[in-house]
Design a protein around this nucleic acid. Sequence first.
DNA 1: CATCGAGA
DNA 2: TCTCGATGG
Length: 341
Amino acid sequence: MGVPIGELIPKKEIELENLYGKKVAIDALNAIYQFLSTIRQRDGTPLMDSKGRITSHLSGLFYRTINLMEAGIKPAYVFDGKPPEFKKKELEKRKEAREEAEVKWREALARGDMEEARKYAQRATRVNEMLIEDAKKLLELMGIPVVQAPSEGEAQAAYMASKGHVYASASQDYDSLLFGAPRLVRNLTMTGKRKLPGKNVYVEVKPELVVLDEVLSSLKLTREKLIELAILVGTDYNPGGIKGIGPKKALEIVRHSKDPLAKFQKQSEVDLYAIKEFFLNPPVTDEYKLQWKEPDEEGILKFLCDEHDFSEERVKNGLERLRKAVKAGRQSTLESWFMKR
DNA sequence: CATCGAGA
DNA sequence: TCTCGATGG
């Protein structure tokens, strides 16, 4: 699940309003996972239509995207392409963890322990091709740009941000910083009240802004050194990192060593230099169009209500808000265009 | 995640 | 008007 360097990263809480008028590239899979794991009943069952097809992600995408648009934020969703070969190990590890969680989910259900059941159900969250296709279809109907990354979505989002085509990359993970995103927004798809795991306590979750330059200057590192640090503590491509090395130690090592990967390469099964190269120069594409169009309201009603049993009243209400938000966005884009001259 | 409505 | 728990699909 991304790089465990959160404790080293300076970040500042912001308000949604601070992102008014900004375009952001959202890591679609990251968002979909969040929706799938949080939008559930208390026993952990996800939302489903009458045919048993999961709809939690559609609900989350639909309402959250509308809320972002209403806040004047223009989201583009970036979907993963083919994962790099050296991610296989991590993907297998995740699959095993999910299968284990699924067993525990069933056990907790049988005991009638709903709290535990929900916890493990969340961990058992799986994303398949069908879910992705449905998500893309909904976003396209909504007139929201869908970007297909050749490889990692985070890398593509970072590229778009570094080009200045979007203000920031949005994800829970810090990987896009390694990929060179000048700005990262966290908590964009899960802002609001959230239950703390374990305790029955709710906290207000606000979006966080992470600025790459500030990260680097506060840690006194270059981006290359930050990548090396990440590789020492573990990335999706070398899960677990180097045994016995946590963020603190890793920071010392990369600060003082010219080539920190060298002495750890022999005790590592994976090619650490290949990982570094991947973070520095990931496959990305220029083939994307960032255009927010009028939603296809009839298509959305057909898709969400007829096919997936959403409430017509709620969807129509959402569409009304979306239509207004798109119009307001147009207006503000036009204004700023005239302001520049 | 979101919305909704009951009850303070 | 606000908070909270249930429900949505």
